[in-house]
Structures are given as structure tokens and as C-alpha cells.
Design a protein around this nucleic acid. Structure first.
Length: 410
RNA sequence: GGGGAGAUACCAAAGCGGUCAAACGGGGCAGACUGUAAAUCUGUUGGCUAUGCCUUCGGAGGUUCGAAUCCUUCUCUCCCCA
């Protein structure tokens, strides 16, 4: 696809949106070598074997990998089933629940299904690092760890931070960078991709490769996409993410809720809008020539179009406006079935209705929602939490601003 | 191996015998204002058809009319020394 690009153009293309490349010169040399020898580069990405739900944050990295594939290179996805025993100490790490072999296999399959949406399957291979790490014996481990010093590992931010705050660090956690680094040795990786939080681990790979007489891999770090809340990085556990398999409407609505300051980052990292066009948008925003909402709608459309298509994006926009600008009910309300057995004399206690619909975890919470004026039935606000509702099939329950359900009595 | 400190709700952190379902703050949720943005303001944040009742303060026992608070023991963590 881009195979005809000059090496400099390739470096430019690859450089877009990256946070850091270690080093650009090495990247250039690798690209040249690949062209001269007609050998695709081996670009590595490590993934957790936890239940996948690929979101825009990971997509930033995957989309970059796709560029490599379009340039003719090979992507190797490592499912870190062995390293999962440790759990990446990056960020707030808690001891992970041990995953069964079947579970890991299942998750890996789901990954493959999901990243197909972005990667070219014919240029992607998937491997498990238990294949080699699991076969090492204790003396192998000692030989490997002898190549790294404690100070070196402790200088890593997460460890230094935890050490300072007196948060426990288990000995085995310090092996994590070593394991990941050894993956690169085993695969003879030319390039390793990751978020900026992976910098240390990826650099560890370079050290180990050198120690094994290999050319060190190039570290290609992408910025961590900030999540919908505007402060934390996008992650599944924080719930501030947009999954690439979410339906268009969800995706669109979620994107509309990001803080304004994030828009240009999202444009750069999550869309294919050319950089100079993004710059123009920024200027118009700053001058007040464009309303932020208009720009955000463009952003939402762009992203929805990538994972669905333009028609879907347009219809998502129409629906969004209908509900939020015109304050009308959405047309495709999810149905919630209320078994008639839960009704007494055709009535149901409002609080129970809300929990039945899945809009509250407990009746206490449901009562609170009602008392705070967050609940509407057929567009009429109800504030009496003790109310028994005389329900007719087809009533619409609304909780908060974004949760709707059409009630079906069965 | 020796000495010291600690474990409290989503997080963080007070409370050190009754007034504790547990302060303050962060986060979350709801409302107001908006562009379902941010900021701000208000309320709320264990459960239960509920002016009351039930279960929570690392685990298990005990003292007491009464325990998050006192005692015993177990588990885990941090710090200092070796």
C-alpha cells in the first residue's frame, strides 16, 4: 500500500502521533535494511491475556501497527500468558486472578477476532510467551537476571514510586521487565510497540538483546489516550473507554462526552484526519469561528466511520441530536421485560421497577435516584419513591439523562 | 534474628468504649446551569417496602449492659537494626 514511499516518507508516516522513538536513526536504518534485503521487519506487541475488549486506547497502538503492515512488515502479537502470572506492575497493580488455560485460549481467540478490525490478519502472527518462558529452568532464570541490576529495575517509575510510598513490591514483580525483554530476544524483534507506560519494559528488551548479541529493537512509544473522564488513561477497569466493537450510537454518544481539551488529541491519535487540517480546526476553535460542539461532532463521526461506516455515523448523529438537542425519546429504546408475576394488581413498586430494569443495583439506590429527581416515567418526573406504579405495556422509563427503557409486560 | 508501626467503606484518611452506617477529601451517581463538554453550585454515596430493622471497620475468639474502639490469637504489610 505504502510500499512505494521513500524511507524518509516512511519515517514521517510512522512518526505521526508517536510519543517517542528510540531511536529515530535506528528506525531509519532498520527500514533501509528491510528494503535492501527485502526482509519484512518483525514488529512486536505484547498483550495481556485478560478478557479483551479492545478500546480506542489500544487502537492507537494497533493502528500504528497497521501502518507497518501496509509498509510490508510483519506484526507479532504476544499474548503474555506466562507474564500474566506476575501481572504488569505498571500503574496500580493488584494481584491478578489466576487465569485457566482454557480461559487464556479463549481470550486469545477473542483478541484475534477483535484486532482483525484494525490489523491485517495475513501479516499478523499470534504467539504465547509461555511457549518459551515456561520452558526455562531456574538456572536459565538466574543467568538472565544476572544481566540486570536491582538499581536498574528500581529506577523504573512505578517501582520507585511504590517504594517511596511504601507500597509493597514483591520480588517476582521485578522479573516482569526481564520476561518481557526476553520475549524480544526470543523473537528477534526489530521493533517493539507500546504505550509510553511500556518504555521501561521495552528498553529492557534492548538491553537483553544486546547482551545476546542481537541488534537492539527500536522502541516505538505511543501516547496513552486519556479516557472519557479527561484525566485517567483509557482503560477497561476504569470504565472510561470506547470499545471498538461498540454500536455506533454508543460510540458516538460516548465521544460527545469527552472534555473539549481532549478533542485535538483524539483527532491526532484516533482518526486519520490530516495533521494540517487538525491544526486548522484548532485555530478556528481558538478564534471562536467554530463551536466546540460542531468540532466534537466531526470527531465523533470520524471515529464511528472507522469502526462502522459513514452511514452509521450519520445516523448516530441524527439520533444523538434527537435525544439530546431536541429532548425527544430515542426510537430504538432497549426493551425491558417485566414478568407479570412481579406485578400485584397490575402494579409494581417504582424502586423495584428501576432495579428490574437494571438501572440501579439496589432498591435503596433506586429510591435515592427517585428522590433526587432523576427518574421519569413516560417523560413525567416522579419524586415519590414509595409510589406504586400502574404499569401499561410500552411505558418508557428514564433514569438520569442517558438511560432509557421501554417496559414490556409479559 | 531483634525492635517499632499499622490493617477502617470505591480510593485516601479520621475515629481509639455508647451521641458510629462511621468525619474531611477524592471518585461515582442525581439535580441546576449548559453544548449529555469543562468549571461551578446543591444533594447523595451498605442493605431491607424502611421514621424502624439487619449486616459492616483484616480473620477467629473474649471482656462489657454496650466494641471500629479494650484483651487474646492468627494472617498480612511497612519502617529501623543485623
Amino acid at each position: 500500500m505504502h510500499a512505494e514511499l521513500s524511507i524518509d516518507e516512511q519515517v514521517d508516516l510512522i512518526g505521526r502521533g508517536t510519543a517517542e522513538i528510540i531511536s529515530k536513526e535506528e528506525l531509519l536504518r532498520k527500514l533501509e535494511m528491510a528494503r535492501e534485503q527485502a526482509r519484512p521487519l518483525r514488529v512486536k506487541l505484547g498483550l495481556d491475556p485478560t478478557a479483551p475488549d479492545i478500546h480506542l486506547g489500544l487502537a492507537v497502538v494497533l493502528r500504528k501497527l497497521r501502518q507497518f503492515q501496509d509498509l510490508g512488515h510483519q506484526v507479532i502479537v504476544i499474548i503474555g500468558d506466562f507474564t500474566a502470572m506476575i501481572g504488569d506492575p505498571t500503574g496500580t497493580s493488584k494481584t491478578r486472578p489466576q487465569l485457566s488455560e482454557e480461559q487464556i485460549g479463549l481470550n486469545a481467540k477473542t483478541y484475534e477476532e477483535q484486532y482483525c478490525k484494525i490489523l491485517d490478519p495475513s501479516k499478523t502472527s499470534t504467539v504465547f510467551n509461555s511457549e518459551w518462558l515456561g520452558k526455562m529452568c531456574f538456572s536459565d532464570v538466574i543467568n538472565l537476571t544476572a544481566k540486570t541490576t536491582v538499581a536498574r529495575v528500581l529506577e523504573r517509575d512505578d517501582f520507585a514510586d511504590r517504594f517511596d510510598r511504601r507500597v509493597p513490591i514483591s520480588l517476582h514483580e521485578m522479573l516482569y521487565p526481564v520476561c518481557q525483554g526476553y520475549d524480544s530476544v526470543h523473537l528477534e524483534a526489530d521493533i517493539e510497540m507500546g504505550g509510553t507506560d511500556q518504555k521501561f519494559n521495552i528498553l529492557a528488551g534492548r538491553d537483553l538483546q544486546r547482551a545476546h548479541g542481537q541488534q537492539p529493537q527500536v522502541a516505538l512509544l505511543m501516547p496513552l489516550l486519556v479516557g472519557l473522564d479527561g484525566s485517567e488513561k483509557m482503560s477497561k477497569s476504569l470504565g472510561n473507554y470506547v470499545g471498538i466493537y461498540e454500536p455506533p450510537n454508543e460510540m458516538y454518544a460516548k465521544l460527545m462526552s469527552i472534555p473539549d481539551e481532549l478533542m485535538s488529541t483524539y483527532f491526532k491519535l484516533a482518526t486519520d484526519v490530516p495533521l494540517d487540517e487538525i491544526r486548522k480546526l484548532e485555530v478556528k476553535l481558538a478564534d471562536g469561528d467554530l463551536h466546540p460542539k460542531t468540532v466534537k461532532q466531526r470527531l465523533a463521526r470520524e471515529i464511528v466511520s472507522i469502526y462502522h461506516d459513514q452511514t452509521a455515523a450519520a445516523s448516530a448523529e441524527a439520533k444523538f441530536d434527537k435525544v439530546h438537542r431536541d429532548r425527544q425519546l430515542p426510537e430504538d429504546l432497549p426493551d425491558v421485560h417485566i414478568p407479570s408475576t412481579t406485578l400485584a394488581d397490575g402494579k409494581i413498586w417504582l424502586a423495584h421497577l428501576i432495579t428490574h430494569a437494571g438501572f440501579a443495583d439496589s432498591t435503596s439506590e433506586a429510591r435515592r435516584l427517585v428522590q433526587q429527581g432523576g427518574v421519569r416515567l413516560d417523560n413525567e418526573r416522579i419524586t415519590d419513591s414509595s409510589l406504586e406504579i400502574d404499569l401499561s405495556s410500552g411505558s418508557v422509563l428514564q433514569v438520569g439523562k442517558r438511560r432509557f427503557a421501554r417496559l414490556i409486560i409479559q
